[in-house]
Simulated scan of single mutants.
Amino acid sequence: MNRHAIERELMNIIETVNNLIERSGSLCINFSSIKKEISIHSQTLTNLLKKGEQVGLIVKCKDLGLGENGYTALPIYVVSLEYKVVNEIVDVTDKFIIMKHTIENKLYNNSSLPLRGATIKIFGDVCVDKPVTFIGREYKQIHLEESIDKYYIFNLDSDVEIKSGEIYTYKYEFYLKYFPPMDYFIIEPFNITMLFRAKTYLTKSGKKVIKSVRLEYLPNIRIIKENQGKTYHEVEIIKIQAFKRIKFWFNI
């Protein structure tokens, strides 16, 4: 089999894995599911999956710490394996509520070039009396000042080199004010995100403060789970393209 035929078959495998991810809502696709979908000999499929691993387009889920068996397809970029958001009410006043937002991002460098540190951005009605806390290879607290455009961006861990094939995880926390009856919070990951999870707590000291949460997003975003309970709202989304905005509307 010539090189071009192998490349065509490999791209077919990658497309098949991506299609199965979309249909199943799982990031990890097992060998038998791929074989059933494209009906090729087991050894041929094994060889193509190995080829995909060699070039970085196919990765075993266990090697990424995704907690499942099987394979996933990755672009040759820096990707977010898991992007987690927790929104908690920490104070309620007559005019507004204050929420603490905790964001944790697990990056995988699937490119051939090294990655340096993390870029984080914050926008909204920031509580400037509370610091932004960053936990990566370094621990840092950043004290903010009022900004006219309510927009802040920071490059952190900039002296840390994350080489090709390495995983880098960081977390940060910040506080925003929200005004009734409706206000919103925006998340916009810089990288392609394989799995996005967000949980919003609706109560403070046993009293319901946020009546409901509504998401606003582009049509090509794939939600695999969304629950609105009495005390929380949670959502899971797979394979978000870079810079795709998700808006959380809070009904206060």
Rank of each mutant, 00 (worst) to 15 (best):
E145S: 12
S147L: 11
S147H: 08
S147G: 10
I148E: 13
D149L: 07
K150I: 03
Y152A: 03
Y152C: 01
F154A: 06
L156H: 02
D157I: 03
D157V: 01
D157L: 06
S158G: 13
D159G: 11
D159H: 13
V160D: 06
E161D: 10
I162E: 00
K163T: 15
G165N: 02
I167N: 13
Y170P: 06
K171W: 05
E173F: 04
L176Q: 09
K177M: 10
Y178W: 08
F179C: 10
P180S: 02
M182E: 13
M182Y: 05
Y184G: 10
Y184C: 03
F185M: 13
I186C: 14
I187W: 04
E188D: 10
P189L: 02
P189E: 05
P189C: 03
P189Y: 01
F190D: 07
N191Y: 14
N191I: 10
I192L: 14
T193Y: 01
L195F: 11
L195G: 02
F196I: 05
F196D: 00
R197P: 06
R197Y: 15
K199T: 11
K199G: 04
K199E: 12
T200A: 11
Y201F: 14
L202C: 05
T203K: 12
T203D: 11
T203E: 12
K204R: 12
S205T: 07
K207I: 04
K207S: 08
K208Q: 02
K208N: 04
I210V: 07
S212C: 07
S212N: 14
S212R: 14
V213H: 01
R214K: 15
R214T: 13
R214F: 11
R214N: 14
R214A: 08
E216C: 11
Y217E: 03
L218P: 08
N220V: 06
I221A: 00
I221K: 01
R222P: 06
R222I: 09
I223L: 00
